[in-house]
Simulated scan of single mutants.
Amino acid sequence: MFDHHCTACDKRQLIFPSQITAMTNTEQGIVVSFTCWCGNAQTMVTGRAAARSEKVTLAA
């Protein structure tokens, strides 16, 4: 459960797991798609962004 400010109805609502329609891993983070109580589809990006594969050399 999390709260979200809906861009359609302009209300802050609690979103329950039953309202989630998809979760997708992207380079920006996890995109959670869900349906607001007003019936409009919404998305929210959460979680850590994907790890970068940069090599780091530590001094000895």
Results as ranks from 00 to 15, higher is better:
1 M>F: 10
1 M>S: 12
1 M>C: 04
1 M>Q: 00
1 M>R: 08
2 F>V: 05
3 D>F: 10
3 D>E: 08
3 D>M: 13
3 D>S: 15
4 H>E: 01
4 H>R: 08
4 H>Y: 10
5 H>Y: 08
6 C>W: 08
6 C>D: 12
6 C>T: 00
7 T>M: 02
8 A>H: 14
8 A>N: 07
8 A>L: 05
9 C>S: 02
10 D>F: 13
10 D>K: 15
10 D>G: 02
10 D>H: 14
11 K>V: 09
12 R>A: 10
12 R>Y: 06
12 R>T: 15
12 R>W: 11
13 Q>C: 09
13 Q>S: 09
13 Q>I: 12
14 L>E: 15
14 L>I: 10
15 I>C: 12
15 I>E: 07
16 F>S: 14
16 F>Y: 11
16 F>W: 11
16 F>M: 13
17 P>W: 02
17 P>K: 00
17 P>I: 03
17 P>Y: 04
18 S>I: 07
18 S>F: 08
18 S>C: 09
18 S>L: 04
19 Q>W: 06
19 Q>V: 05
19 Q>H: 11
19 Q>D: 13
20 I>Y: 15
20 I>G: 12
20 I>W: 12
21 T>C: 11
21 T>R: 09
21 T>P: 00
22 A>D: 09
22 A>M: 02
23 M>P: 00
23 M>R: 10
23 M>H: 05
23 M>F: 03
24 T>V: 14
24 T>I: 14
25 N>M: 14
25 N>C: 12
26 T>W: 06
26 T>A: 09
26 T>G: 08
29 G>H: 03
30 I>G: 01
30 I>Q: 08
31 V>L: 13
31 V>A: 02
31 V>S: 00
31 V>R: 07
31 V>M: 03
31 V>C: 00
33 S>R: 01
34 F>A: 01
35 T>R: 12
35 T>I: 13
35 T>N: 14
35 T>D: 02
35 T>H: 09
36 C>N: 06
36 C>I: 00
36 C>M: 06
36 C>W: 11
37 W>S: 11
37 W>Q: 09
37 W>L: 13
38 C>M: 03
38 C>V: 07
38 C>A: 01
38 C>E: 05
38 C>D: 02
38 C>T: 10
39 G>I: 11
40 N>F: 03
40 N>I: 06
40 N>P: 05
40 N>Q: 09
40 N>L: 05
41 A>K: 13
42 Q>L: 00
42 Q>T: 05
43 T>S: 13
43 T>V: 13
44 M>D: 04
44 M>Y: 09
44 M>S: 14
45 V>K: 01
45 V>S: 06
46 T>V: 14
46 T>C: 09
46 T>K: 07
46 T>W: 02
47 G>T: 02
47 G>H: 10
47 G>F: 06
47 G>Y: 12
47 G>I: 08
48 R>I: 02
48 R>V: 06
48 R>D: 11
49 A>K: 09
49 A>G: 14
49 A>V: 04
50 A>D: 13
51 A>C: 01
51 A>I: 01
51 A>D: 03
52 R>W: 06
52 R>L: 15
52 R>F: 09
53 S>A: 01
53 S>F: 03
53 S>W: 07
53 S>E: 04
54 E>H: 11
54 E>P: 03
54 E>F: 06
54 E>Y: 04
54 E>L: 13
54 E>T: 13
55 K>H: 00
55 K>N: 06
56 V>E: 13
56 V>R: 07
57 T>D: 06
57 T>M: 06
57 T>V: 14
58 L>Y: 07
58 L>W: 08
60 A>C: 00
